[in-house]
Design a protein around this nucleic acid. Sequence first.
RNA 1: GCGGACGUGGUGGAAUUGGUAUACACAACAGACUUAAAAUCUGUCGGGAGUAAUCCCAUGCGGGUUCAAGUCCCGCCGUCCGCACCA
Length: 931
Amino acid sequence: MSRYNPKEAEPKWQARWKAAGAFTADASGGKPKYYVLEMFPYPSGRIHIGHVRNYAMGDVIARYKKAAGFNVLHPMGWDAFGMPAENAAMQTGSHPRDWTYSNIDIMRGQLKQMGLSIDWSREFATCDPEYYVHQQRLFLAFWKQGFAYRKESLVNWDPVDNTVLANEQVIDGKGWRSGAVVERRKLSQWFLKITDAADDLLAALDDGRMAGWPDNVRTMQRNWIGRSNGLAMKFRFAAATSSEEGADNNAPPPEFEDGIEIFTTRPDTLFGASFIAIAPDHPLATHFAQSDSGLRDFISDCQKLGTSEEAIEKAEKRGYKLQVEMAHPFDDRRLPVYVANFVLMQYGTGAIFGCPSGDQRDLDFARKYRLAIPPVVLPPEADPVTFTIEAEAYVGPGTLFNSGFLDGMTTEDAIAAATAKIEEMGLGKEVTQYRLRDWGVSRQRYWGCPIPAIHCDKCGIVAVPEADLPVKLPAEADFSEPGNPLDRHPTWKHVNCPECGAKARRETDTFDTFVDSSWYFARFAAPDPDKPIDKGAADYWLPVDQYIGGVEHAILHLLYARYFTRMMKACGYLSVDEPFANLFTQGMVVHETYKNPYGGWGPADNVVIEKIKSDSQLRPHDVRTFVLDYATGQKTNIEVQTTSAERLGWMCKAVMDAVEHEYFIDYCEQTAKLSAFVLDRESGSPYIIGPIEKMSKSKKNVVSPEAIAETYGADAARWFMLSDSPPERDVEWTDAGVEGAWKLINRIWDAVSSSEGLLKTVDLNNPAAGDADKPLRQTTHGAIAGITDDIENFRFNKAIARIYEFLNVLKSTSGAGDWARAEALSTLTQLVAPFTPHLAEECWETLGGEGLVCNAPWPKADPGLLARDKIVLGVQVNGKRRSEIEVAADADNAAVEKAALSDAGVKRHIDGKTIRKVVVVPGRIVNIVVS
RNA sequence: GCGGACGUGGUGGAAUUGGUAUACACAACAGACUUAAAAUCUGUCGGGAGUAAUCCCAUGCGGGUUCAAGUCCCGCCGUCCGCACCA
């Protein structure tokens, strides 16, 4: 019996599939369609094991659906524009185009090696002019429809490199390359009006259009859109008191004469207001800064945080008090006005009133600046005399007090009453507000799709005429320095205005790469050389029936794609609102990271693990490390959570010394992360094992599937990535375990290869099975039912466990005849086919199956073989399992109760006690309550 | 900081969605086969007590609801993801 040889079998079957056109999408035959799509990869260089997991999942679904009788579309392409190509160009001098396309070539080869059931005829990269020309067409259509506009917005500006920085390029407020403190700078940029669609994007989350999406993603999008009803109202300036000096300087500018507009969702707490706060980039702050150098310094400090909301919100709450005061609308208090770093200009009106008793941030702020903290909402059951606000604000509902005309009202009533009062006073009105902001699509970079617009001094901003598309990137550009190569290109931007013919300039911004990925699924479904989308084909294939990708895309990519779909529908390209009927978000593949003493990262695939002296079952976080001073006996703990290079160096040294002296390990109930280190295979230099993180090139913790495929074949790699861990959870890559997949492949091959030609000797359509075959047939049909259900519900790890169980039974069963064995083996082959397709074809051929197994219809379970006549029930006494009984599957409760009470193991626990109650849950359990 | 998830043996995890906790696999250990190794096969494998039958404890920690809680509720702790210019 020959051993299964994936090196021969895998290329052979890949060639046969290709020759048979097995995975070419076909809309004919009147079959239902099924569009499976995995988020397409960024061509970073090589496929990593995380990609394999993602695409193996999609492939299981695609192959299963094909077998289940669907016309399947399963395409692949490349999200090919983006910063890494441009960074590589800066570092190595290679052109982004060359870098990208050569990566694509490598990665395409790697994906093909995995034996995915992809229709490669539809492949494209978003950086192909044949793709982005249509993106430019779409944009012009959107612009015409009024979905696109320009406005000023803030960017991170590196004053040394003179370039715009992405948020990820701002590290601790400094530019990653130059180290210069970043500034915020205003640029005029292109925006798409996603806020116009906010209501529908929100409504679709809950009205059934997105029933196939996971709840957590819908919740995240709902929160991201952040619709809230509130009150937009003005606080008027309080008259300057005579004691104030320089009152002239503190006069508000004319546009703010009637006050500062704030937005609040809690107008009921107005009586608890103790200050007004405005954003550092609020026009009023800018105005007062002209005559106040202290304020200028404060604002510029705030701007050093960059533009990311995370950095702003995490920063310590700080404020700068202005010389003006606002009048409280309901009483005669005067409220101080602060410019505060935690107020966001993008949200609401860029100004708030602070109610310290009802908002934690306001409370922290009030404590810091010693402002009043009047409690105004009394929690249910609290005593108004003794109730005080200590460390925590009370944000829940309650009854209003200390609040004038609102006293005694519930939170809900008080919100309505306060809103009505403010409206009556003419100070404001109820408004709906979104957290969602319009989508800024401008990027000041070369490697993106050019925005097809021309700036003319006379005509303003003019669309590039349809006939002049595509606006192609210039073939050559200068990448030797930071900044936008398109802007400094000697010729590219100089064009004549398409309207007046005068000299004009091209738009040098390119599109955000999220634009590229917001419609690729439609292009896959309906390519057309002359139009973005072939409507007929799009109507057949869309929406995507199953979309698969990482949770990290839960908000931005998915929300933008949903919005784009709406815009395309509005412009007549599509007929659907929602692009993805069902969404599955898979977990990431993570790996240990290795840090060297100088703070750099070590390679994950080139290290020898040197476990520190340990007893056999040492767990990584059970260990504490310390250095022992021999003279004093003093132990010094080694801290491991650090990023400082010096500290890491010291640690590494300490560990190395300690290995020699074997003195340094102690079990510890405290968490410590360091238990082992690794050595670089080549240099021998030690690395600390750092945190387990998402695989990324920069951290070098990427594991290549190639090596696995080389040794064990693509099937083993695919099988291993899907076994064990539930698909939605992160999985930590370990080398152990692939061997297990390889063993399984051989066990299946072993089971099948000894029955060569068996399918030719029996007629599976004509059952010839006796009583002796029943146990095996029950197992076979149980496996069909279970595995089908598991695949349908993305429980691949469970499906795989069931395949193991099926195989274990199959191997240990001896009594069954040829017919039942043939049924079991052919079923096994078909059930593993979505997971290990090459092996399955080889098995199918060996067994004598007809044609390709990938074309064979999915097996159906016989319900008659799924039922059991006897079942085993657990019996509990007072909730503790004490015994089990076997009863007929259709036994009634009385019979079950009787059997339970007479069971010896149960009697021991109930004798001499009073039976209070017997709970019989049919088919599940019996619980006897005694006292 | 805000939003979303997750936490079960040495490890990945299963638990029919409130009903026999630890399926299946990895690792480890023991044995068979072998001149030997690899491969393969068989067995053991949460902790503790006991010759054994069996009993006690255990699903991050602390409470609660229930005949019954890994699952539901409240409060903590820890880890991960996203936060609008990474893709």
